[in-house]
Design a protein around this nucleic acid. Sequence first.
DNA 1: CAGTGGTCTAGACCACCTA
DNA 2: AGGTGGTCTAGACCACTGT
Lengths: 232, 232
Amino acid sequence: MTKPKYKIIADHVRDKVVSKQWLEGDRIPSETELSELFLASRMTARKAVEQLVAEGLLERSPSIGTFVKAPKAQSSLLEIKNIRDEILERGHEHKVVVLSKNSLVPNDKVALELSSWDVKVYKVVILHFENNTPIQLEERYVNASFVPEFLDQDFTKKTSSEYLNKVAPLSEAKMMVEAIMPSKILSHHLNLNENVPCLKITRTTFSSHTPISICYLYYPADKYRVTSHLLI
Amino acid sequence: MTKPKYKIIADHVRDKVVSKQWLEGDRIPSETELSELFLASRMTARKAVEQLVAEGLLERSPSIGTFVKAPKAQSSLLEIKNIRDEILERGHEHKVVVLSKNSLVPNDKVALELSSWDVKVYKVVILHFENNTPIQLEERYVNASFVPEFLDQDFTKKTSSEYLNKVAPLSEAKMMVEAIMPSKILSHHLNLNENVPCLKITRTTFSSHTPISICYLYYPADKYRVTSHLLI
DNA sequence: CAGTGGTCTAGACCACCTA
DNA sequence: AGGTGGTCTAGACCACTGT
């Protein structure tokens, strides 16, 4: 199970960039130089560079070279608020019901996101109420080796995301918003009427470049929406 | 200026997929078969397949084969990208049908957002296609006093948001994402099956603190999602 | 001119799955 | 055992840019 050579090269270059040893606009070694440095063929070095270009880390100019790309300007607009604060800010009451707590071997999809091959994963399912109306179903998977005591927490006192943010401070997050029709069980938990869709938010959170947790958040579409405000 | 061989192969495969000759879940020819079909080396055929996997059109399973994936388009919550660039970046074709152009007195809701009480407002309804599949219905209201020539534009050449951004550069934006069940007319335009919800994005854009335009964007939920990536 | 990225070839070995 | 994708090599020619 050794790491492919092109990944070793890509990781090395990525590290130089994120550690600011190579700065924005710098030219990185050419494909030929990289292949010599790592005793690889040019095609292999090239594959590493291609991957980083796809990641948006590098930029290539034919006949000129490959350069560290300027990172995209991103305003800190998308807050990762936790549901309890959100509800309290509206002056409403927040209640939590923990539906299940499990320790399990991850299925493929979760394993891939958490990149925890042989690692244990904890899973919790929690229902959040706003003034006794179900507002969010939280299905959360946690990298057990990074947060070993996760399952021992009392999530009625402190939400899972509050706890995670304390033990493994958030450094990065990926979010995805979709509209779905609820399954029967989801419809039941969220107390949905016929023909009411759900917002599904998939959120992967990272702490120091390691994926810590992936969660699926389901909201009744008639009671919830996501907003953002962007200043340029 | 001839097209690279891997692009010829990729275009051919993409065409098979978007023309529904190869359906979702179908296995496509193996790398070896493709290389024989196009008199190319396996590496070249592979590069074509890799590109289509990156585009989200195909999915590979080691030892099993390469399969047509159910594609989900996606856009970022953080960027105000216009739909045409988004589609072109995915290597797809963008087509536009202008359903209506109107000059009108705003109703209360739009007036409030555009804060143009007695001011004229333009309204356009535009349907956007990605590879001949309807992907976005755009219902847009524009502050006529700030963009007087809006209705004279040919939105098949330049999207409405491209034009607006040129004449009144974006300084601020508010966004809202909801899940809704489509109305009959919306369901018809987006060519939706029964029981498929929609993502509704409401976006108000500002230029130098003045609201310029408010638009409602409707997407088929089975073909579209919104993503964001947050670095802290 | 030498160096760069862009493309391409004809092999190779591997791990894995299915038959 | 034969097919699949995953990785890798050691060459090759091209168009282009800098000096």
